[in-house]
Amino acid sequence: MRIDLNSDSGESFGSWSMGDDATMMQIVSSANIACGYHAGDPSVMRSTIAAAVENKVAIGAHVAYPDLAGFGRRFIDMTATELIDAVIYQIGALQAVASLAGGTVSYVKPHGGLYNAIVHHEAQAQAVATALAELNRASGTNLSVLCLPNSEIERRAQDAGVQVFYEAFADRGYTPSGTLVSRREAGAVIHDPEQVAARVVKMALEKTVTAVDGSEVGLNAHSVCVHGDTPGAVEIARQVRAALEKEGVEIAAFAG
């Protein structure tokens, strides 16, 4: 049995620091690297990619709305053309920097507000799927998308010929319907490393997660996100990996 561990990475900006990317790259198997729209800058992007390549971690483009002030967590009502071009622009920047370090961008994971919107927003889901399909056709790449199962982006990406992988979240609360609890509500984020590790083991072995109301929700994930920006993120990631390996679960990238 195998599963991927991914982390949102490269989210520092200028003199402002977020997360311990260098250490996290020694724990995870995939890194979703910010492309400058919600966080990150060219120098942060380059150093984060270098750390990923050094540790043989798969590189993903963490694309977002143009929203530095809101950390990309707010919905922006972009037109289809604007969003297609914004996604292509961000991936292209990451691809250029990755090539200098001998790395390759193998997948895309939308961030924050965009990630949540394309679960149900048909036009924006189509725009993201179109951007990936256009890039794959034009450059001969095989960019896949990492997303929630049973989502609009899943359906649109598959229709566009883009490979889809499913994601679960180690430290986020789930509703009985299998969606994430809003960050504005109680139980949205779990901070206890032992509790988080036990949840991920259950995700990997039993393909389920306990929702906030105590019910069991089916969950078939290729990758589990261990957030890099939460307090104690590195310790949580370490305990998650150790717990999985103790149960004989191999940690390996889903793409790349």
Results as ranks from 00 to 15, higher is better:
residue 134 E to N: 15
residue 120 H to M: 10
residue 165 F to G: 02
residue 243 A to Y: 06
residue 203 M to W: 07
residue 197 A to L: 02
residue 222 H to I: 00
residue 238 R to I: 05
residue 11 E to F: 06
residue 245 E to S: 08
residue 152 E to S: 11
residue 113 G to M: 03
residue 174 Y to S: 06
residue 36 G to A: 08
residue 206 E to G: 00
residue 229 D to E: 09
residue 89 Y to A: 12
residue 112 G to V: 04
residue 40 G to I: 11
residue 39 A to M: 13
residue 27 I to N: 04
residue 156 R to W: 00
residue 119 V to P: 01
residue 155 R to M: 02
residue 125 A to F: 06
residue 220 N to S: 09
residue 82 E to T: 01
residue 11 E to M: 06
residue 169 F to D: 11
residue 76 I to S: 00
residue 13 F to T: 10
residue 140 G to S: 09
residue 175 T to H: 06
residue 81 T to Y: 01
residue 51 A to N: 07
residue 174 Y to V: 06
residue 42 P to S: 08
residue 253 A to T: 12
residue 113 G to I: 05
residue 103 G to D: 14
residue 252 A to T: 15
residue 197 A to S: 09
residue 37 Y to H: 15
residue 112 G to E: 05
residue 184 R to T: 13
residue 209 V to W: 12
residue 77 D to P: 00
residue 30 S to D: 08
residue 194 E to D: 15
residue 220 N to V: 12
residue 205 L to C: 14
residue 196 V to I: 15
residue 204 A to S: 13
residue 25 M to Y: 04
residue 177 S to E: 15
residue 234 V to P: 00
residue 80 A to R: 15
residue 150 N to M: 03
residue 67 D to N: 03
residue 174 Y to H: 05
residue 147 C to L: 06
residue 242 A to I: 00
residue 161 G to H: 09
residue 62 H to G: 07
residue 63 V to L: 14
residue 118 I to C: 08
residue 169 F to T: 10
residue 143 L to Y: 12
residue 92 G to R: 08
residue 68 L to Y: 00
residue 214 G to I: 04
residue 187 G to C: 02
residue 225 C to H: 06
residue 232 G to I: 13
residue 183 R to K: 11
residue 114 L to S: 03
residue 6 N to A: 07
residue 135 L to K: 03
residue 83 L to F: 11
residue 160 A to Y: 00
residue 141 T to W: 01
residue 110 P to N: 04
residue 71 F to Y: 14
residue 30 S to W: 01
residue 25 M to G: 11
residue 215 S to Y: 08
residue 90 Q to D: 07
residue 50 A to Q: 15
residue 128 V to C: 07
residue 161 G to D: 09
residue 64 A to P: 11
residue 119 V to K: 10
residue 234 V to H: 12
residue 192 D to S: 10
residue 131 A to R: 10
residue 182 S to R: 15
residue 169 F to K: 13
residue 221 A to E: 04
residue 243 A to L: 04
residue 148 L to P: 01
residue 12 S to P: 06
residue 228 G to M: 06
residue 74 R to W: 04
residue 134 E to T: 06
residue 53 V to D: 09
residue 224 V to Q: 07
residue 6 N to M: 07
residue 231 P to M: 12
residue 171 D to A: 05
residue 165 F to L: 13
residue 108 V to S: 07
residue 57 V to S: 10
residue 100 L to H: 08
residue 159 D to K: 08
residue 20 D to I: 09
residue 248 G to R: 14
residue 193 P to V: 09
residue 150 N to I: 05
residue 253 A to Y: 05
residue 26 Q to N: 12
residue 25 M to W: 13
residue 106 S to D: 08
residue 41 D to G: 02
residue 229 D to T: 13
residue 7 S to E: 11
residue 139 S to D: 15
residue 70 G to T: 05
residue 208 T to G: 02
residue 172 R to S: 07
residue 52 A to N: 07
residue 218 G to Y: 08
residue 54 E to A: 15
residue 35 C to E: 14
residue 60 G to Q: 06
residue 149 P to C: 10
residue 3 I to M: 11
residue 67 D to R: 04
residue 75 F to T: 01
residue 141 T to N: 13
residue 34 A to P: 00
residue 19 G to A: 03
residue 130 T to H: 10
residue 47 S to D: 13
residue 30 S to E: 14
residue 159 D to C: 02
residue 42 P to R: 03
residue 6 N to V: 01
residue 139 S to K: 11
residue 158 Q to N: 11
residue 56 K to C: 04
residue 138 A to P: 03
residue 236 I to D: 01
residue 97 V to N: 02
residue 180 L to A: 01
residue 130 T to K: 12
residue 176 P to G: 11
residue 144 S to Y: 03
residue 243 A to N: 12
residue 71 F to K: 14
